[in-house]
Amino acid sequence: MACSLPTGPARLTAGGALVVVFLSLVGCSDGGPKVVPVSGIVTIDGQPLTYGHIQVLPTGWRPASSRIGSDGRFMLTTTVSGDGCAVGTHPVAILAGESISTEATKWHAPKKYADSKTSNLTVTITGPTNDLKVELTWSGGKPFTEKFEREGGTELQGLGK
């Protein structure tokens, strides 16, 4: 929702002047939380994660997401490109499964990170930042390819971690 104030020779009443002052103090919004610019890096075992997407999931508000670049960096978007993320502490998911064929997915990070309920990841956003760090670990594992077998038109999950 965009904010606009009267332009031209419009006459402000006392009530109208109060609205102008209020809007200039709090800014315009569509009723949601404050969204601030957020960018950073995702690492796995200390090295940049080179493939995937990050999702930050504020409760009761729009998710913020970004593609993770080949250098591990991301810039979150909630409604318009690069606008950031809502202030607060939020669960995070890292989607790092690359479809390499209709029967196989290469996992660049453990599958547990793909769901905010199993990732055990959260971020706390207090204001604009360009150095948010999200650290993942293989916990002794390594990248792997998960294969699916087709049997009678049904996909069956194959080997994987």
Rank of each mutant, 00 (worst) to 15 (best):
A2Y: 11
C3H: 11
C3I: 15
G8C: 00
A14G: 00
G16D: 04
V20D: 06
V21K: 02
S24C: 02
V26G: 06
G27Q: 09
D30I: 04
D30R: 13
D30M: 07
P33M: 04
V38K: 01
V42C: 03
L57Q: 13
P63F: 08
A64I: 05
R67L: 03
R67Q: 12
G69A: 12
D71K: 07
G72R: 05
G72N: 02
F74K: 14
L76H: 15
T79Y: 06
G82I: 10
D83H: 12
C85M: 03
A86W: 03
V92D: 03
G97D: 15
I100G: 12
T105C: 03
K106R: 13
A109S: 07
P110H: 01
Y113A: 07
A114N: 02
D115M: 10
S116I: 01
L121F: 07
V123W: 09
I125W: 06
I125T: 10
T126H: 15
G127H: 05
N130R: 05
N130V: 00
D131E: 03
S139D: 14
F148R: 07
R150K: 07
R150L: 07
G153K: 10
L156W: 12
L156I: 06
G158H: 01
L159A: 09
L159Y: 06
G160F: 07
G160R: 09
G160Q: 11
G160D: 14
K161S: 13
K161C: 00
K161T: 02
